[in-house]
Amino acid sequence: MYRWCTDEVEPHDRFDYWREVRAKGLFGVTAELERERRADFFGEFSLRQLGGGGGLVELKASHYTVERSTSDIAYAPGDSICVYQQLGSGGWFGGMRGNDFAIANGSFATSHTDLPYRTAPLGAGGFHLRILKIPVSHIPAQDRRIRELAPKTFNDPALAPLLAACFADLGEAAAGDATSLVQVLAHLALIERGIVRPGSRLGQAALRTARLSQARRLIARHLQNPDLAPAMVADLLGVSVRHLHMLFEAAEKSFSQTVTDERLERSRRLLRETPERLIADIATSCGFESLATYYRVFSAAHGMAPGDFRARGSEGH
């Protein structure tokens, strides 16, 4: 992981350095800001190289404008698709074929790197976004239309939650898992843009992985509910219970094993981090139907009672 911040540069040089070295040199764009506002400029970013040729950037910066012009493209061609996740107050895109558009906080957009555009944050808070960049040469679904993807919001209400789940997983994934997630995200973007068919081999594989990712996140979100069951998650996911079980059959753990392991993991964390909290309260907050059930499941998994586990932790073991 590479991180950089304008605090490493003298205040009067910060925007100029950002514009020439970071914006143009690293991202291949032209950055502009009124001279009288440059003294207050702030910017930071992280760059993580991922398997499958992908790169994940998270960028925060105070307000300025960005352009990827034809000369910028000629100077630094990228031949990649980008998936943008807006995290700040929103952004505006314009200057390309079609209408200008705004992208709201939490929303996504996709594009090919080598088409002109302009962008600026909508709010006073400036930019905050993640950008996943995937070289076209690393995408199995080769299609000339990939290079014609002008920036566009990700509007499919069924696909957007899947993209969000996989994006969240990507930020936490180990190198091997990141490689497959990069491919899944690329294919989800191409499904949304009409280039990969959902029923194709690549489309089905991407949708299966993404739905499993979202199912796991739904489990984590509703873990406290003792009535958490396949029917509930399947309904939230928009699939049948049979389809949900098929997703988990292809994974390392079944649905019930996943729920139990998540509850145990959360309870272990709470036992370590909140030594003053009653074990009965921890059991309830993790979704165990009773204290007796919690003791039985915990002891079977760890060979000791929750209280003994907590005592060992306090002793430094």
Rank of each mutant, 00 (worst) to 15 (best):
4 W>T: 02
19 R>Q: 09
22 R>D: 04
22 R>M: 09
29 V>Q: 02
35 R>A: 04
36 E>P: 01
39 A>Q: 13
43 G>W: 00
44 E>V: 02
45 F>R: 01
46 S>A: 09
50 L>P: 08
51 G>Q: 07
57 V>M: 09
60 K>T: 10
61 A>G: 09
62 S>Q: 08
64 Y>R: 00
64 Y>K: 00
67 E>L: 04
68 R>K: 13
68 R>Y: 04
69 S>F: 01
70 T>G: 09
71 S>A: 12
73 I>F: 11
73 I>E: 02
73 I>D: 06
83 V>T: 04
92 W>G: 03
94 G>W: 04
96 M>R: 10
97 R>A: 12
98 G>L: 07
101 F>D: 06
105 N>V: 06
107 S>K: 10
110 T>M: 06
111 S>T: 03
111 S>F: 05
112 H>K: 01
118 R>C: 07
124 A>C: 11
126 G>F: 11
128 H>V: 12
132 L>Y: 12
133 K>Y: 14
136 V>E: 14
141 A>M: 13
146 I>A: 03
149 L>N: 01
153 T>N: 03
155 N>K: 05
157 P>I: 01
157 P>K: 00
158 A>C: 06
162 L>K: 02
165 A>L: 13
166 C>M: 13
173 A>N: 03
174 A>I: 11
177 D>W: 06
181 L>W: 02
183 Q>V: 07
185 L>R: 00
187 H>Y: 05
197 R>V: 03
197 R>S: 10
197 R>M: 05
199 G>T: 03
200 S>T: 08
201 R>D: 14
201 R>Y: 10
202 L>V: 11
203 G>T: 11
204 Q>A: 12
204 Q>W: 08
208 R>Y: 14
208 R>P: 00
218 L>H: 08
221 R>K: 15
221 R>T: 15
223 L>C: 11
232 M>K: 12
233 V>G: 02
236 L>F: 12
246 M>L: 12
246 M>N: 13
247 L>R: 02
251 A>Y: 12
264 L>G: 04
269 R>Y: 05
272 R>T: 06
274 T>H: 09
276 E>D: 14
280 A>Y: 02
288 F>Q: 00
289 E>G: 07
292 A>Y: 10
296 R>V: 08
300 A>C: 12
302 H>F: 15
305 A>R: 12
310 R>K: 14
313 G>I: 08
317 H>F: 15
